[in-house]
Each structure stands twice: as structure tokens, then as C-alpha cells.
Design a protein around this nucleic acid. Sequence first.
DNA 1: AGGTAATATTGAAGTACTTCAGATATGCCA
DNA 2: TGGCATATCTGAAGTACTTCAATATTACCT
Lengths: 180, 180
Amino acid sequence: MPEMHEPFIETDAAGRLYDRRVREHLRRDVPENEVAATEALAALRLASHGFRNRMDRWLERHDMSEGRLSVLWRLRAKGSLTLGEVAESLDVSARNITGLVDHLERDALVERFPDPEDRRAIRVRLAPAGKQKLADIKREMGSARHGMVAGFTDEELSQLRHLCLKLAQNTIAHRELEKV
Amino acid sequence: MPEMHEPFIETDAAGRLYDRRVREHLRRDVPENEVAATEALAALRLASHGFRNRMDRWLERHDMSEGRLSVLWRLRAKGSLTLGEVAESLDVSARNITGLVDHLERDALVERFPDPEDRRAIRVRLAPAGKQKLADIKREMGSARHGMVAGFTDEELSQLRHLCLKLAQNTIAHRELEKV
DNA sequence: AGGTAATATTGAAGTACTTCAGATATGCCA
DNA sequence: TGGCATATCTGAAGTACTTCAATATTACCT
């Protein structure tokens, strides 16, 4: 049996999980009023790191990545978009989308074409193979996702969604303020 | 006034936030029993993406990155570690830690030294400048974090921590199973 | 109608992450 | 005691992300 990680996720008196390492770190010298925020954000980081790694591994079987898949979903929703619109929609740089679309184009999953109204812009749309790839992924995604949320009630998933979007709202509001 | 993002985070009848784009996508053809999980995981992705970008921008002022900062915190907690131990602790590849420690060493924030008991291994510890850097960052981190969790009650933060760690447990359990 | 600031995409250069392979060292077993 | 499997770190090569600058184009203002 290979060596396992030393467990660091424990349950407190109220029945809630906490990260022992973070709590030990906090005991040193983090002000009391920052404990809850620090622990929550550290947990968010841990969860998303694990989730992303898990998704990466799963998507490898489809010769896909999360970044490229996001582009495909967005194109499926919108029909076609300029590269800039894709970038804004996914909150990444236009340079990044250039690379992701290069890769998707190389795999024949999308097609680039000129924007009829703006000769600077390039539009992109799903190719038939891209539509098929999304159908294939969707067919199997359910069971993968099911494993990731094993043990969660619908109420917990709803609450997780709500709290994450509340956090996202803060980061979006902050970013919009920085534009001014 | 620069153009703002079209708002996509809305509130449902129960007073909970949801991502309109995800919900529209779900209405097409995602099975009912997968809706809650899909929405929760999409929200987690959005929150962590925004949080990470926000942290990146904030850490730039300290000439730091999240990856390198994680290394520093871990060294502060443990005194010294081998590069492999840092990698395992942060759930990243040893190759990645080599690069992060290269950068930290170049900035004189850490020091590498031979492991007295294993000539293959290299240990790393905080340099005095690293300790100072952590002190500087800690002094200001509170207000940055405060902004990120504006509008959250301690109860919500505790619940967010719990739900994220519950998710993290699933990804950790899955990864340990893959080792067998 | 011309000039100029802004926009869209991509080339260049960088960081953070991955996998794989190589060099050196360790530990275990026969 | 020697052989072999495993461990540790890093070089090589790759992806996904960033910023900045360059080129071509658009839009607006005088």
C-alpha cells in the first residue's frame, strides 16, 4: 500500500470540517477577526486545486483541457464570437484565447473566420468535430461530476453555489472598480 | 465610464445567487440530477478564478506569487523541508518546487542546503529576508482579505470553509485511490 | 478629409504548472 | 556483497496563463 497523505482535514465540535494546518498557522499570530476569512479562502484554494487537478486528469482522456473546453462551451452557447469576446466572457487575456483557439483549430474542433464588420477582428465557431466532442464529453461528465460531489445534499450544493457566487461578486465588483 | 461586464450573477426566488449563463446552459440538456452539482462546481471555478486573479494582483506589489508564497508559509510552519516534502505538502510536482525555490533563492528569500542524511535530497529553509517578507505581507493581508469577503457573516465563512473542505476530501480520497 | 487615439489580434518574453527521462543515491533482498 | 527497484532533484519539453509591444484597422474629432 503506497504511503498516504497525513490527514489534515478534521471535524470541529460543531461538526464542521477545518484544515488543521491552517488553524495551527492561525494560532500563531493572525488576528481573531481574520480567522474565519483566512480559513474559508484557504479552503476554497484547496478545493479548487483538487477539483482542477481531477478535471485535468479526466479531460486528458478526451484529449482536452479545461481552458479549451470552456471555449467550446461558450461557442456552443453563442454560435460564434470574436476572440476578444471569448476572452472577456472567460475573464482571461486575448493572448490566451489566441493560443487556446490555435490548439482547438489544430484539432479541427473550431474554425476561425473573418468578422464581416471589423477587419481587425476574427470570429470563431464550433466545427462539426467540436460539436461531436462536446456531445461525447457531456455523455460522460455526469458520472465524473457525481464522484466529485459524493456525500453532498442538493441543499449543500445550492449553498456552495450561493457562497461561491457571493465571493465571485466581490472579485468582479473590485475588478470593475479598478477600471475606473 | 468604461464598459462594464453584463451582469450574470442573479438571485433566485429563495434568495440564493445563481449564474444565469450556467443555468441557461443547463436548461438545454443537462439531466435534472446533475444540475445542482454542475452549478456548484461552475461557481467554485468562478470564485477561485476571481480570487486567484485578485491575489495575483495584490501580491505583485510584494514582488511575489501565490505559488512562491505558499512555499514560504510552509517553510515558516516547518522550519526546513526537503524539496520533495514541500511538493507533497502543496500537492504540486517536485519539478514545480524546483522552479519556485529557484526564484525564491534568486530573491534571497530562502536558502538551499544539503540534507545531512540523504545525499540525494536538498533541504530548504527561510532566509532572514524571507521571514521579513512574510511579516510585511502578513501586516497588509488582513485588509486585502477583508475586501474579498465583504458582506459575509462568520457563519457563512464557516459554512464555505466546511463545504470546500468536504469537496477537497473527495478529491483527496480519489487521488489516494488512484495510487493503489 | 486628415490626424490621432483606441481596438483586435498576435509575436515576444515571462511564470506556474505538468510529464518524462536522466544522473546520483538509497534501501532492500537474496 | 552485489544487484535491482525506488527515491530525489533537475533538464527537456510542453500547456495555460500573464504583460507588453507591434501591426493593421476603426472611430472620432477638428
